[in-house]
Structures are given as structure tokens and as C-alpha cells.
Design a binder for these strands. Sequence first.
DNA 1: TCTTGACCTTCCCATAATGGAAAGGTTTAG
DNA 2: CTAAACCTTTCCATTATGGGAAGGTCAAGA
Lengths: 146, 146
Amino acid sequence: MRRTKPSLETAEALSSGYYNIGQAADATGVTAKMIRHYESLGLLNRVERTLSNYRIYSDRDLHVLRFIKRGRNLGFSMKEIEALLGLWQNSRRQSAEVRRLAKQHAEDLEARIVEMQSMRDTLMHLVDACRGDHRPDCPILEDLGR
Amino acid sequence: MRRTKPSLETAEALSSGYYNIGQAADATGVTAKMIRHYESLGLLNRVERTLSNYRIYSDRDLHVLRFIKRGRNLGFSMKEIEALLGLWQNSRRQSAEVRRLAKQHAEDLEARIVEMQSMRDTLMHLVDACRGDHRPDCPILEDLGR
DNA sequence: TCTTGACCTTCCCATAATGGAAAGGTTTAG
DNA sequence: CTAAACCTTTCCATTATGGGAAGGTCAAGA
């Protein structure tokens, strides 16, 4: 079970709408480990601490964490997410820039998909050509060793 | 240009059908760096050395390097390649085992392809929905921050 | 013969994103 | 007061690849 109500300065924070790292992790689906990591990458602006040095997060921080998580789910790299986050937080952004980043990433994905499909197809053909019995003869190994 | 004919014990080796690491790299398309790495992984059984400590490779070694390269091109991990290499060099292998490995890998590829297609499709929809002009309004960021 | 450039050697470091684990401080419930 | 469940930092590992330094070797030309 996660602790519900601490007592000292920490308690003050947690009862004022703040979250400790475990609560933030539960709320966003981002592990505590990765929350600290994202902070070290500079994606979370200045994380507050309690007197006992515990990190505390605001609703706004959780929002950022969810943004990062969603970006990762879409396959963006941390570098790309950093850029998107900057645009997200910049009210004078131009949507053209965001669109360009997203389109580029979609195209990168497409290129990788095509490459992997080619691998898969080649493999499937080899698998189909292989008897797969007790004998050593094997078109798959023959291809690899060609 | 690569040196053609050394003089001492190294020369003996190179004129006896052996290759130094640079020549092996040129012949197989595997970088010298990676050839050393594969050796450290134990994929090349005992690599010979000249008196001056230069590695020398036989045609059989080049064959192994090409096998590895082909396996990498098909997306196999080094662990998988190690297993396939073992089967390749085992005359009493059963092709069923090889086929099982290849099929599993093809299925792994397929799973990743499906996942990436889903990412790509979601992104494409968002890109299509984004005007991409000078204004800040952007469905892509809205989705990421939802 | 000496020099030079193109090789070769080993060793250390870096990448991207994530997790495991150790050693130790803090809080809270019992 | 103690034990459980948190939190902290720091170090290490993963996968496959490459960069670079410091230094030894070899071939060819002056």
C-alpha cells in the first residue's frame, strides 16, 4: 500500500495537491525510475523537494509526464519529445513546425516498417521452403551461408 | 590503398591464403571493429595471429563473417545468430530447430511491424488533421497532451 | 637507412531508454 | 519503538555499433 498522509513538511505538500514520486508514477503510468530520468534530461522544469528531500509533483508536472508517455507510445525519441514539449509549452508556436516533426517521424516509421517487412518476407519464404524435420538439410542455413 | 605484400611471418600468412583484418573487412563488408567484436563474443573460433600479433583470417572465417552479416541483415539478434551458427556448423542438426528459430523471429518481426503500423497510422491521421500553418492551434499537440 | 603513411593493436568512452540493485534516510502504521 | 513501505543517490547492465587515443608494424620511396 502507498502511504496516504505524512506528517511534516512533506504532509503539507501532499495535502496541498502535490504528489510524491510514487503517486506520480501511479497516476501517469511512468515508473519512478523514468520520472527521475526525464528530470535528469531536463524535461521537467525544476522539480520541487520537501524538507526531507522527497520530490513533489504538481498536476502540471503530471500533465507533462503524460505528454511524454503518449509521445513514447507513438514512437517518438526523447529528443523529438523534447522538441514537441517545447512547442507544446510555447503559445506562440506555429503548427507547421509541429506538423513537420510529426510527418518526419511518420515517414521514419514507414521506412523502418518497409525494411522489416522485407526481412519478414524473406524469412517467411525460407521458413516455407524448410522441411523442418529431423534431417539437417535446411534452405534457411543455406541462405545465411550463401 | 591497402598494403599488398608484407615481409616477415605476416607475409607468409598473407601469401598463404590468409587475410589480415582490413582485408577481411573489405571482403565481407563487416568493419574491422565489428570483426573484433564478434571474436570477443566467441563467434569466431580461435583467431590466429602473426608473430607481430596481427589477426589473420582464413576463407572459412570470411564465410562465418558473411553468415553473421546476412543474419544481421535479416534482423536476427547476436544471440540468435550464435544459435544459428551453432546449427550451421553442426552436421547432425535437425532442420526443425533451425526452422523454429527462423519462424519465431519472423513472428517477432511481424509483431513489431504491426505495432509500428499502428503508430504510423495514428500519426498520419493527426498530421492530416493539422493545418500546419503559422497559427499555434494543433491537433497533434492536443492529442499528445490529452 | 630513415621517414612516412597506412596499417594494426588494446583500451576507454558514448550512444538510447530502461531497469536492477545496493546502501541508506524518512515516514507511518501498529 | 519497530517494521514496512516509502524515498534518496549511485553504480551497473542491456544491444550493437562506432569514435578516438596511444602506440606497435610494415611497405615503399628518397
